[in-house]
Each structure stands twice: as C-alpha cells, then as structure tokens.
Design a protein around this nucleic acid. Sequence first.
DNA 1: CGGCAATGTAAGCGAGTGCTTACAACTTGT
DNA 2: ACAAGTTGTAAGCACTCGCTTACATTGCCG
Lengths: 197, 197
Amino acid sequence: MTEGREPPARRRDAAATRAALLAAATELFNERGFDRATVRDIAERAGVNQALLFRYFGTKDELFALVIANRSRELINSAPPERLVGRTLDLLLDPDSPKRSANPLVALLRSSSHDEAAAAIRAELGDEYTGALAALTGAEDADVRAVLVLAWLLGIGLLRSVLPTEPLASADPQAVRDHVLRAVRTLLERVDIRPGE
Amino acid sequence: MTEGREPPARRRDAAATRAALLAAATELFNERGFDRATVRDIAERAGVNQALLFRYFGTKDELFALVIANRSRELINSAPPERLVGRTLDLLLDPDSPKRSANPLVALLRSSSHDEAAAAIRAELGDEYTGALAALTGAEDADVRAVLVLAWLLGIGLLRSVLPTEPLASADPQAVRDHVLRAVRTLLERVDIRPGE
DNA sequence: CGGCAATGTAAGCGAGTGCTTACAACTTGT
DNA sequence: ACAAGTTGTAAGCACTCGCTTACATTGCCG
C-alpha cells in the first residue's frame, strides 16, 4: 500500500500530497462542515504544509467544491435509481463511517450558504440526485416527491452527525432502513426495498 | 404598537433593547446559522450597540441557547401531538416566513456542533419533540420512528433554506403536507392527517 | 437640585481565519 | 554535474471574530 509501481516512491510527490489533502479535506468537511474545518486543520491531518493546499487547489472554496463534486457523483453512480435510496441509507447508517466516507450531501447542507459557486454546485447536485429519484414514480409531481425523499436522507444524516447519542446510533440499521424505505414507497412506488449489496 | 401603557415610552429602556436583540438574534440564527450570524450583525439589526448584547446575555452561546429554547418550546406546545407534524410542516412551508418565524430546530441543526451547553440543549429538545411524537405509535421502537420523522422535518426545513429555488418553494404547500403526512403514517399510525388551523 | 445606579457608546485587545510571500531542499533533464 | 523547475517550509499580513474596558449620557429618588 505504501508504494505501487512505476515511480519508485519519491520522497516529494505532488500527486500524493494532493491526494492526502483531498482525503483530509473530505473527512473534515464531513465532520465539521465548511466553516469549522480550517485550512490549518486540513493540512495538519494530511501531514502537509498548509501553503500547499493553496498551491494545489487555489482556494478553500475551490477545494470544497472539488470534494463535494467528487463524492456526490460517486454516490449517485454507486447504484441504479431503484436502489439509490437504500444504498444511501446504508452509507448514512453504517456505524463504521461516523465521519469518514458516507455523506457528501450532508456536508454540503451543513455548510449553509457561503458563496455563489458552491450554491451552483449545490443546485446542480440536488438536481442530479432528485432527477434519478424522480424516475421512480409516474406521478405528476415527481420532482416534489423526489426532493422530499432527498430531504429525509439529509435530515437523517445531519441528525446522526449532530446528535450522536440519538436512538439512530444504537438502532438496528436494517430496521431503520426498512422503516424509511416503506414510507418512501408511499411517494416513489418503484423503489427497491430489498437489502442491497 | 410603539408604546403600550405603564412606562411612558422611555428613551432608554433595557427591556426594549433586550427584546430587540432577542428578535434580531432569532432572525439571524434562522437565516444563517450560529457561525455566520455575527454579534455585530445581530446588534446592528437590533439597532443597538453590540456591547449591550454581552451585558444582557453574557455570551453569544448563551444568547443562542435562549433563542432556541424559547422558540422550540413555543413550537412543541403549539399543537397536540397528533397535529404536531402537520403544524410544523405548515410553519416550514409557509412562504411568508422564509426567515423569520418558523424553524427553531432547523437553526439548531444548522449550527453544527459548537459547545457542550448547546449540545445539551439540542439533546433535550430533541427528546422533548420526539417524546411527543413517540406517543403516536404503539410500536416497540417508537423512539426510532419518532426520530426519523423529526429528521424528515429538519431535512425539509434545511433544504428549503439552502436551496430556495427547489421545487419545494413553488410547490403547493397542501400537497407537500399531504405527501409527508401520509408517508409518516407508515411510522406513526395515530398522526392526524386533516388540515389543521 | 445632586448623587448614583442604570443604560448606551467608542475603541480596541487577543485569538483565529484564509491566504501570500520569500526562501530552502529536492529531483530531474541534459 | 549543474542549472532549472518542482516541491516543501516558515513566517507573517490583513482581516474578522467574540468579548472587554473606559467612558459618556440618561433617568430616578432622596
């Protein structure tokens, strides 16, 4: 895992530090949201000088946009639409990923409104996600229904990250998943309820 | 509206400025969350010197706690449990209250984790709200179901305040309310679906 | 009135923020 | 091997934040 192939493990490696910064930023934005994740913290977690963050990403805003775009697309493409809700729930409820991996959209929400660029990304990704979900119903107001489902997932992720003591943390993920999926089927009749993976 | 009765409208009035600060803080915490609502902005909107904020409330944290406690209790007591979800939805979806009145719990969530005092309040109010909701089902895991419903309401409020262009803004509030309530009945069989007020 | 607490004001302190700059250390192509 | 470009480092600048302090003004009560 330390070194792979081609370049014989250089001691100075731009690509590696860039990746380390990206990983650290992903974690911290998820854990704390945009405002409370400082560039110094990100650089420190990456084990890297903070000036490099600006060399490689230009701005904290740009870094944030990159992180969100990456992880959101990744999530949206990780399952077919019928299983997207279930898949997202699995990630949100996975106790092994209290911070690290799961919830890019939650990080987005948690970072209130800060600049226009990020706002555009927000809208775009929201559209992408709800677009996928809206295909799961024949109802006229498919988009409204899809947005409502998205809102639920976001709320669950947020609550879990803000109130770690809530019953959600200790509840059986399968049972929670089941509750949500059955309720969601009221809105999107074609969602797949079976356990995924 | 300017002056009521007893004290003949004093030019210097501690109670009045305290109230102005509280109102301004309520608005700004709702609009921007804890971090981005600065004490300078709050004081300015209240038309008051910012030092007074600290004289009357001690700390930004304490002011926040007060605002949240006030408005949450107000909300929870504004309807019997069977109608609490519907009532909250009405407030969240009311287009006339994009910022001002409706969503104390949303403001809470939007303010990520900042200090232990607020965290305690968060937990306490969450318990209060979910306690009311949990009474609406006979299921064993009533608390989990209640938390899921709370999460949905929070998600809806957050999405609405962060993506004002979403279909939620232009959708018919009654229809949205109906969708959510019917889905929620999957979890809490005793919720009242009829339009309130 | 005169004294005093209550109320309001102006200025700034210390800490933390995003970001920049000037420079050292390394790697590489020739 | 050596210059040139790349990568890493240390320091600090300009700004904003929550909060404090020292001082002016007002209203109240004997």
